[in-house]
């Protein structure tokens, strides 16, 4: 099972930089296994915004927002991973919406969901964003 991860602009490029992007990868690799993380290109401080930031999700321009998000969608699909980890609320909403809208088939998950799943403590009602392949795991 492969995973990719979105570097939130707010967390990485706009505030704590590449060191926090490395911390993020340390956690993600610990959770999914080192060989199962496939990075998007470009990444870390050079990452592309998903299109959910700056109020775009609420500004009433859904067509423009999804046009913007096509770049991110293509980058996610290029990894071939069926899961995109989104450690930011805006990223999660936008990347989830892009997959639904373009019927891309990947899943968008919070980091906390996967941490708990990997520890075997994810409850039945906490699996909204998991695909059918992981939804029953460890229940």
């Amino acid at each position: 099972m492969k995973f990719t991860v979105q570097d939130p602009c707010q967390l990485v490029r706009k505030s704590l930089g590449d060191p926090i992007a490395e911390d993020l990868r340390f956690v993600v690799k610990s959770v999914v296994g080192e060989e199962n993380l496939i990075d998007m290109q470009p990444n870390r401080s050079n990452n592309y915004c998903c299109g959910g930031g700056g109020g775009f999700l609420q500004s009433g321009f859904p067509e423009a927002r999804r046009y913007y998000g096509r770049r991110k969608l293509d980058q996610i699909l290029e990894t071939g991973a069926p899961y995109c980890i989104t450690p930011c609320h805006n990223c999660h909403s936008q990347i989830h919406d892009l997959s639904e809208h373009y019927e891309a088939g990947y899943h968008s998950v919070h980091l906390w969901t996967l941490i708990c799943l990997s520890m075997g403590i994810l409850g039945e009602n906490e699996r909204e964003y998991l695909g059918p392949d992981l939804a029953e795991l460890g229940l």
């Binding site: 602009c9 490029r13 706009k14 401080s45 050079n46 990452n47 592309y48 915004c49 299109g51 959910g52 930031g53 700056g54 109020g55 775009f56 500004s59 321009f61 423009a64 927002r65 913007y68």
Partner: peptide
């Protein structure tokens, strides 16, 4: 220009 609301101010342009 409504484009001001379509730029997410992500700062990648500054980075580049």
């Amino acid at each position: 220009s409504p484009w001001a609301w379509m730029c997410t101010m992500c700062q990648r342009c500054i980075h580049a």
